[in-house]
């Protein structure tokens, strides 16, 4: 098992000349990106620009895709996660992920959250209760479900299901939470709740979010990266990117003149 030194590094995740191919398709080209801890970083760009591919590199989710080839480095706490001998499962424990569509397990609300810790070997009921309680609270879902923890998670609304998925990710105490368009299938009220939650989450975690909604990126993130055709075009503070981008391509994209 690889140990990660949880020091006070300036950057929690760094990529160095990261390139990725799906067969012949060069999907990521020389991506260099440094992400600060306890900040929200948004990845924006037109469809097919490589945002989701990049975010999936951070917890090695691309490993399961055949013909996917990666060159370059992704550092997590200064340790290259693509080095030989690094266990992808260990990485995914520390770098959790929430997907576009809420995907709760067809189990009870309680079991959805307790599942991860159980796999990790925690079987003590009291300890599991504590984890479920804490995770639900941190995902701003506790008050809505506290009286029906044994009900099926499938009976929750889309927004609640998505927060349950966030709670499920938090249950294994990650360091970083990756969100791949977490609000794209939610209504405006559920979206607002998730956005508020992201603001809370960054106090304890580092959040990296892929979104097509630029206003959402502007609202929730501290840093924004604009990607186009697999390249990182511009990366900077969100205020600067949306108010006064330096690159013409970024400006054209965020003003809707392109993309």
């Amino acid at each position: 098992m690889v140990k990660y030194k949880m020091g006070k590094e300036e950057y929690i995740i760094k990529t160095k000349d990261l390139n990725l191919w799906y067969g012949d398709k060069h999907a990521l080209i020389d991506v260099n990106l440094n992400m600060k801890p306890n900040k929200v970083t948004a990845l924006i760009g037109p469809s097919g620009c490589g945002k989701s591919t990049l975010i999936r590199c951070f917890n090695r989710m691309n490993d399961v895709i055949p013909e996917c080839k990666i060159k370059g480095q992704v550092y997590y706490h200064e340790k290259d996660i693509y080095e030989q001998g690094v266990d992808a499962v260990e990485i995914r424990k520390k770098i959790g992920m929430v997907f576009q569509k809420p995907n709760p397990f067809p189990k009870s609300i309680y079991e959805n959250i307790a599942y991860g810790p159980r796999v990790q070997g925690i079987n003590n009921k009291k300890k599991l209760d504590e984890i479920v309680e804490k995770s639900l609270r941190n995902a701003a879902l506790r008050d809505e479900v506290k009286d029906r923890l044994n009900d099926s998670a499938m009976g929750l609304s889309g927004g609640q299901q998505q927060r349950l998925c966030i709670a499920r990710a938090l249950a294994i105490e990650p360091d970083v939470i990756l969100m791949d368009e977490p609000c794209s299938s939610l209504d405006p009220i559920a979206t607002a709740k998730i956005e508020d939650l992201i603001g809370e989450l960054k106090k304890k975690y580092t959040v990296i979010i892929v979104t097509h909604n630029m206003q959402q990126a502007a609202r929730v993130s501290d840093y924004t990266s604009y990607m186009y055709l697999g390249k990182m075009i511009e990366y900077g503070q969100t205020k600067q990117i949306f108010e006064n981008p330096k690159e013409e391509l970024t400006e054209k994209y965020i003003t809707g003149r392109f993309g």
Binding site: M214, Q215, A218, F242, E243, N244, E251, I254, T255
Partner: peptide
């Protein structure tokens, strides 16, 4: 329209 960048300015 929630404009951005030069449009917002």
């Amino acid at each position: 329209y929630q404009p951005m960048a030069i449009d917002l300015r």
